[in-house]
Amino acid sequence: MAGGHGGHPIHIHPVRPLYRIAATGLGASMWFFLMYRAKKDGAVLLGWRHPFEH
């Protein structure tokens, strides 16, 4: 098998804290934006209201 030293042949390095924080922040901002747009345009998206009605 690959490696030849026993154990698993693939070594995965730990994630740096900066990348983990950045990924969490970007993911959270994405979901906040999606929920904000769903609040504003959700009825139109689901067909409950026409977009040209005010």
Rank of each mutant, 00 (worst) to 15 (best):
A23Y: 07
G3F: 00
M1R: 13
W31D: 05
A22D: 03
H13C: 10
A22V: 07
P17R: 05
R16N: 04
G42Y: 10
W48S: 02
L34W: 06
L34S: 07
Y36Q: 04
E53Y: 15
L34C: 15
S29N: 10
F52W: 12
P14C: 05
R16A: 02
F33D: 05
H11T: 12
E53W: 15
G7W: 01
P17K: 06
A22K: 07
V44F: 03
L26Y: 06
K39I: 00
P14D: 11
R16V: 02
Y19W: 13
G4H: 02
Y36M: 11
G7V: 05
H50D: 04
I21A: 09
G25Y: 03
H50R: 07
A38I: 04
H13T: 08
G7A: 09
G4C: 04
P9N: 11
M1A: 12
H5F: 11
L46R: 14
F33N: 09
V15M: 09
A22T: 03
Y36P: 00
R20I: 01
L18K: 06
A22C: 06
Y36S: 13
L45K: 12
G42C: 08
R37K: 12
H8R: 12
A28Q: 05
P51V: 06
H54W: 05
Y36N: 08
F52K: 14
I10F: 07
Y36A: 12
G7R: 11
